[in-house]
Design a protein around this nucleic acid. Structure first.
Length: 472
RNA sequence: CGGGACGUGGCGCAGCCUGGUAGCGCACCUGCUUUGGGAGCAGGGGGUCGGGAGUUCAAAUCUCCCCGUCCCGACCA
């Protein structure tokens, strides 16, 4: 029996589709204060997987976790001119505490360069203390004018790395290392989201940075999403917070600092990169539930239910993240669509009919393909299928992106291409006037690349290519 | 913050123009029958209509102010 669509089709109204997925897959709700977000358990479990995988890579890159306070003296922000200017409009400021006015207002951190800079200054004395590689997992607050769940909320969860280096070269190398070995590697290999990596133009840089490197993904509506950034802060913060050291020759030097972050925005990216008209689709490696064992219907003795639970235990034993849905009182079709909505990569259907043949049915969320499998071979087949799905999802996402990325030579062509995806245009063909012209239709330069897709070392290196698109 | 749309049980909506204190679908609860792709029947519970002020004998319906949500724009992880 054909039913009305469960969620608004993407082609009909993409923003509404996004809202529907958020609601129906039980991912998030608006908080009571404007712009705030409640992350529901199913989404939070995925976030925890993201945290685990990013954290592992951060530690491999040599950084250590620490924690700095939520409250920052307002005066700290003011020490770096561009930084204050950039963040002032979106600060939450506490002026009252303990029943009286505070002598100095404190801001709720919008990012922690300033406090961490203050402590780096205390902790670094010698070149032997460098590099100092710190990271913290925290919540930050930026009073956003136009919030959207996961993509831009007034409070969000993230990881912020803050490092001090002895030289500009060391800082640049590390900023790029984080971009590649932590962010790009994580996004491509865990989230199955291909990203363009590149350099931000001055207008798009982090407030107070010399250079901002970015990972830009493409959502299924053709709009770009900035998934993560890595900044070279030069000596701006080192100067403002007196982060310095004594070198081998006894000379006094200023440090070169970097900062880098990814946030719960990645959840939004995950949803909009892989989701389809049946709901969310989570790549197996990041899925909190990789396989759902669903009891189609039980028999009189309850032996099918027992079999389903036993199969669940076997899959768990094999190292797969499993949930068993044996709520046989709810009709099968209902539960099947619910798990598809939540995007669980593989569904194992267990019912009396299959069991009689010693089989179960595996169903892929990405392709919908159904495969009968002998129970004896289930663990191995399921594990292989998860690998196959991971690869297939990355391939599909890469194909979608590449087919919506066009090389052009004029601003008019770029505007045209950006209506549905990315346009690549030689940067000198774009120029300031081109940037402004595209800006009128909300098309912006997402990043700059060298001709072969590498990272340009300056803003105006010859042969630089600009990737332009509409963005979130 | 500027422009637009909207706010009625958990969700989606009707009612508002032509004031007379609330209705539908889904969801939820109970029972029975069902269960291999969003089950059926029967019986139930839940809202005072985003908030406030006003007009009126009477306001979900009219007026004003405020708040919130969504879309577009400027800003951004």
């Amino acid at each position: 029996m054909a039913k009305a669509p469960i969620i608004t089709p993407q082609a009909e109204d993409f923003p509404r589709w996004y809202q529907d997925v958020l609601n129906k897959a039980e991912l998030a709700d608006n908080g009571p204060v404007r712009g705030t977000m409640v992350i529901r358990p199913y989404a939070y479990a995925i976030w925890e997987r993201m945290v685990a995988e990013v954290d592992r890579r951060i530690k491999e890159a040599g950084a250590e976790n620490a924690y700095f306070p939520l409250f920052i003296p307002e005066s700290y922000l003011q020490r770096e001119a561009e930084h204050v200017e950039g963040f002032s409009p979106e600060l939450a400021v506490v002026t009252h505490g303990g029943g009286k006015d505070l002598e100095e207002p404190v801001v709720v951190r919008p990012t922690s360069e300033t406090v961490i800079g203050e402590y780096m200054s205390k902790w670094i004395q010698s070149y032997r203390d460098l590099p100092l590689l710190l990271n913290q997992w925290a919540n930050v607050v930026r009073w956003e004018l136009r919030p959207r769940l996961f993509l831009r909320t007034s409070e969000f969860l993230w990881q912020e790395g803050h490092c001090a280096h002895a030289s500009q070269h060391d800082a640049a190398v590390y900023a790029e290392r984080i971009l590649r070995d932590v962010y790009e590697d994580f996004m491509v290999n865990e989230l199955a989201i291909p990203v363009f990596t590149g350099r931000k133009i001055p207008q798009e840089r982090f407030a107070g940075a010399l250079n901002t490197l970015t990972c830009e993904a493409m959502m299924r509506d053709g709009k770009a999403l900035q998934m993560g950034t890595s900044h070279e802060l030069g000596q701006n913060f080192a100067r403002a917070f007196d982060i310095g050291y004594q070198d081998e020759n006894g000379g006094r030097q200023l440090c070169w600092t970097t900062s880098w972050g990814v946030s719960t925005r990645m959840m939004g990216g995950l949803i909009m990169s892989h989701g389809d008209d049946r709901g969310l689709a989570v790549p197996p490696r990041i899925a909190a539930t990789q396989v759902v064992v669903i009891l189609v219907k039980d028999d009189d003795q309850g032996s099918a239910g027992d079999a389903a639970r036993r199969i669940g235990a076997e899959l768990t034993e094999a190292g797969i993240r499993v949930r068993v849905d044996d709520q046989a009182s709810t009709p099968f079709g209902r539960r099947a669509t619910d798990w598809e909505l939540k995007g669980v990569p593989v569904r194992v259907e267990v019912g009396p009919r299959d069991l009689a043949d010693g089989q179960v049915v595996l169903v892929r969320r990405d392709s919908g393909e159904k495969t009968p499998v002998d129970i004896a071979a289930l663990s191995v087949t399921a594990a292989n299928m998860l690998v196959t799905i991971q690869d297939a999802m990355l391939d599909a996402a890469t194909q979608r992106r590449d087919s919506a990325t066009v090389d052009v030579m004029t601003v008019a062509e770029a505007a045209d291409a950006a209506a549905t995806g990315y346009a690549r245009i030689p940067f000198d063909r774009l120029g300031e006037s081109g940037i402004e012209e595209l800006g009128r239709t909300a098309v912006t330069v997402r990043c700059l690349q060298t001709a072969d897709g590498g990272l340009p070392s300056t803003d105006d290196a010859p042969g630089t290519v600009a990737l332009v698109a509409r963005s979130y």
